[in-house]
Write a protein that binds this DNA or RNA. Structure first.
Lengths: 98, 98
DNA sequence: CTTACATATTGACGTGTGTCAATATATGTT
DNA sequence: AACATATATTGACACACGTCAATATGTAAG
């Protein structure tokens, strides 16, 4: 339903997808992300992380002064599956894994 | 790459997803779509159809005075597959169908 | 060729969104 | 407590985007 819209909106930004690729399969703290992003300030990165966190697309874990983020691949997979079922039902697997 | 961003942007609107659901598995002309959409004017529907067409997410076919649209499920599937490979690689099938 | 109908385009308007500088909050250190 | 570092929040700004009324374009019929 509207969940698919929220997912699409969360993904609908180049910098957000850059952050997601950085967080794929590893944990990074905000400063590391900022260091790897060119031409994007720390507040902007923090803002994008907030949106991704709100959408459940990243995990967050505090460790001392720093906060580490990592991509939530499960949620991405669930949302992609929902998109497939909604908008490519004739191509999506009929039965989902339980 | 940036294609995933374009796909997400095209999907990032509730009315656009409503239109896509209407066009799932059938052809509708613009007036039919307008009739089934509440509180959305004909120019607005036309505008959304243009964005979906630009993104390759719908097929369009002229038939006399009317233009019929239908959802392009293949493109949706391709884009979802790309999202999966980019952002859920540990959950996506390793080998894609040729 | 004029008329009628279907769709697309234009122009204007309000709202949403990405961005940054400045500042606040949180945590650890001395 | 004072300070330093890491992250989040605020406020302001420009620009993108969704929306509609009005108009233009395309297509067929009389």
């Amino acid at each position: 339903m509207t969940d698919s819209v929220d997912f699409a909106k969360a993904m609908a930004d180049e910098n957000r997808q850059r952050v997601m690729r950085l967080l794929c399969c590893r944990w990074l703290c905000v400063n590391d992300i900022v260091a790897e992003m060119s031409n994007v300030s720390q507040p902007t990165v923090s803002h994008h992380l907030g949106i991704l966190r709100e959408a459940g697309l990243v995990h967050a874990r505090r460790e001392g002064k720093q906060v580490f983020y990592s991509l939530n691949q499960d949620e991405v997979a669930v949302c992609c599956g929902r998109l497939m079922r909604n908008f490519a039902p004739e191509l999506a697997p009929t039965v989902a894994e339980a």
